[in-house]
């Protein structure tokens, strides 16, 4: 069968199947299960109305169950077995992991990431959004700052590897250092601070995201409230912090939490920059260290990450709903 024919057939079966499901199931509900006839008319209509939403939700619930709930449960079960997957070890993987210094370093670094990356990205995003608001060349500045969003994490990491490169002929930092006569350094090997040099990459990428969302939010503030504050005597700083920021606080929270759980999922940057060496591991890259070698341990780490992300995500969704 030619690929085109196969594609067309798939679409017809897929779309037709959907239509058939929704039409057919509703028909069965209205005609057979709860027919709107005879004495029970009113009650049956009411019942059918109660059942109908579930009919529409069913395909989505099944798909989500298959692709989201099952893997979560499956992972949890897998994390209770050893590396071969055949011996049940209970919470052994977790206990072993908590005692390992590598895991503790990863958790500590991860907290640094959660604190620094969302804060810095949101701050710079807000700063750029405010500063470029009324600028004639603001749109150009904004698109330049937005651009890193379009690069993959690995691509961005490669760019920054050049920035940090030890050879002054390649790395711009060492080139500047060499100009002032300093000896070459490798920023990625400076203990503790190397974490921040890696985080800067994420900040560089996420500032654009924060800027776009916050810029739109700033535009949404009613102009009159700003004018009223000007008449009330507020200076530009008071205007920004007392009138504008409180009015977009909901959006700031959404941006902050969105970047927080993006941060909790990032592994590519650390993997590409240091491979987790020099005490720069974070939980996702720590997980990848064990993936395919000890799936029991890797799923245990994955589970810890999920437990950390979930509350942030719930807060995020609530905040986003409130905003609308």
């Amino acid at each position: 069968m030619s690929p085109i024919l196969q594609g067309v057939l798939t679409i017809i079966i897929g779309v037709g199947g959907c239509l058939a499901y929704f039409y057919g199931s509703n028909l069965v509900l209205d005609r057979v299960v709860f027919p709107a006839r005879n004495d029970d008319q009113g009650r049956n209509i009411r019942r059918a109305t109660m059942v109908r939403p579930w009919l529409f939700l069913l395909p989505a619930i099944l798909a989500l169950g298959l692709y989201l709930v099952y893997p979560v449960v499956g992972s949890f079960i897998r994390s209770l077995y050893d590396r071969s997957g055949s011996n049940f070890v209970g919470l052994g993987n977790y206990l072993e992991m908590f005692q390992e210094s590598g895991f503790r370093v990863a958790v500590f670094n991860n907290f640094l990431w959660i604190l620094f990356v969302p804060a810095a990205s949101t701050f710079f995003g807000l700063l750029v959004a405010q500063l470029t608001d009324r600028l004639s060349w603001g749109a150009i500045a904004k698109s330049l700052i937005f651009m890193p969003m379009a690069i993959s994490f690995v691509g961005a990491s490669l760019i920054w590897k050049f920035v940090y490169a030890g050879d002054p002929a390649i790395g711009i930092i060492n080139a500047i250092g060499a100009y002032f006569g300093a000896a070459p350094v490798d920023p990625l090997q400076i203990p503790f601070w190397n974490n921040f040099f890696i985080m800067i990459i994420m900040v560089w990428m996420q500032t654009g995201f924060a800027m776009v969302i916050l810029s739109a939010a700033l535009r949404g503030i009613p102009e009159e409230t700003i004018e009223a504050a000007i008449i009330d005597g507020a200076n530009p700083f008071q205007l920004f912090f007392k009138i504008k920021v409180p009015q977009i606080a909901g959006t700031i929270a959404v941006v902050w939490t969105t970047i927080t759980f993006l941060t909790l999922k990032v592994f590519d940057i650390v993997y590409t920059m240091t491979g987790g060496n020099f005490d720069t591991d974070i939980l996702p890259s720590y997980m990848m260290d064990y993936m395919f070698r000890d799936d029991g341990r890797a799923t245990a780490v994955a589970f810890v990450i999920m437990v950390i992300v979930t509350p942030v995500m719930i807060y995020n969704i609530r905040q986003a709903r409130k905003d609308v």
Binding site: E224, E227, I231, Q247, A249
Partner: peptide, 12 residues
């Protein structure tokens, strides 16, 4: 002091 058509109260 000015009173605006849309009230212009600080919503927060």
């Amino acid at each position: 002091a000015m009173v605006f058509q849309s009230y212009a109260l600080y919503p927060h």
